[in-house]
Design a protein around this nucleic acid. Structure first.
Lengths: 216, 216
DNA sequence: GTTATAATCGAATGCAGATTCGATTAACGT
DNA sequence: ACGTTAATCGAATCTGCATTCGATTATAAC
């Protein structure tokens, strides 16, 4: 068996990207470690050299997706020099285009999230290592959820700013933002690369909808 | 072992309702047949007297939820005497209040749906009965998806009517409806009965958002 | 070269959970 | 009463994974 030299061997990131893809096609439960491994020409056993467990791998997929999304959004959200409506337009576009370009990640943010909330604690017969691994996982997962709220908070911030400045009419900011994010996330559920509209065009429509709701 | 007399024994519907509940709390993968059975004081084995398989049971949960939702929406959608905006307001309210009152079903429509899309065909060593059962299941599932589009079509119809009549400004109807349904479905994900707003109040906000987007 | 370490594999383990089976009991019509 | 059918159960199967283990090879450091 010719092993790949270390410098060309698949690394964490390649596995994460492939896993996002497989997860998108099959969903959390029906995706096996073998499936993910096959996507990078490895065996299931090899994945455990890179990730402690399947849950840890999936969490890494979501973390990577969220980090990328936040990075894209943050750039425009924090540009204090533009008015709120300009910033919000750019944020919605960045969000939707991101979801459309990486449908795997977009859908994962909606679907696989749930699986993570449900991870079961080790049973009574677990040893200390198992318990420690579980504790680590929970800490990391909770960090993920906090980070996820950071994402939402960026939107709340900008919408709130706009209302303050009188650029937007008054709305219930948290509810408005949830409606907006619901609509945007949903794109990840129905979007098809070969569909009638691409990410940019869909973004145009959602921008139109939510900005006119805010500025009418 | 005292068996319950047939006339008080749990029926299909009771199992479906209980299953919706358990599914809501634990999610598809982590919900076992035993869990569902326990919720109606049965054993896992007994469930197979009422449902062919776990998948069939989950599908029944979704069907029941969808039927209820369609029934609620249809009543108002098809009242040709009211103007489109009045009808759409009532539909959004019916949808969200329904989701909030049955969060189990609301969340299931978002989450568990995916599990159903991924059901695997029987493997090569399956006998004819297995293949037939699988075929039945697929037919039923596809019927479900069609029915689900019926639901969406009701919204497209009313929004389309409004645009035709000039009550609403012109929009891309399918995209608008998806944004709307995304926002509404998302309520099922974050809604908590003990939260700041009840279903009616949330409905008020979403109605406000989407109707002002349409009438500005 | 020699050695330590990183990556990989094939095969074995272990288990949880869906599904099946045969037996048992309750209700209902006759 | 009596047989038939519907519901239920406990225990046994069966299977598909996640995960572990020991061995093997490649790479890098020295």
């Amino acid at each position: 068996m010719a092993r790949k030299p270390a410098n060309q061997s698949v690394n964490r990131d390649a596995i994460i990207a492939a896993a996002a893809d497989v997860l998108h096609k099959h969903g959390y439960e029906t995706t096996t470690m073998k499936d993910i491994a096959a996507a990078v020409n490895l065996t299931a056993a090899s994945l455990y050299h890179h990730f402690r467990s399947k849950d840890a791998l999936v969490l890494s997929v979501l973390e990577a997706g969220l980090d990328a999304a936040i990075a894209r959004i943050e750039a425009v959200a924090c540009d204090e020099s533009s008015p709120a409506d300009t910033r919000l337009r750019a944020m919605i576009r960045a969000h939707i285009v991101g979801v459309a370009e990486h449908p795997a990640v977009g859908a994962a943010m909606v679907y696989e999230l749930r699986a993570l909330m449900q991870v079961r604690p080790p049973n009574a017969s677990a040893d200390d290592a198992d318990r420690a691994a579980y504790a680590d996982f929970i800490v990391r997962r909770d960090g993920f959820f906090r980070r996820r709220d950071t994402f939402e908070a960026l939107f709340r911030q900008v919408v709130g700013d706009g209302v303050q400045d009188g650029v937007f009419r008054p709305v219930d900011v948290p509810i408005f933002v949830r409606a907006l994010l619901g609509a945007n996330n949903w794109v990840g559920v129905w979007y098809r690369p070969d569909g009638r509209l691409n990410g940019d065009a869909i973004a145009d429509h959602n921008i139109d909808i939510f900005l006119s709701a805010l500025m009418s």
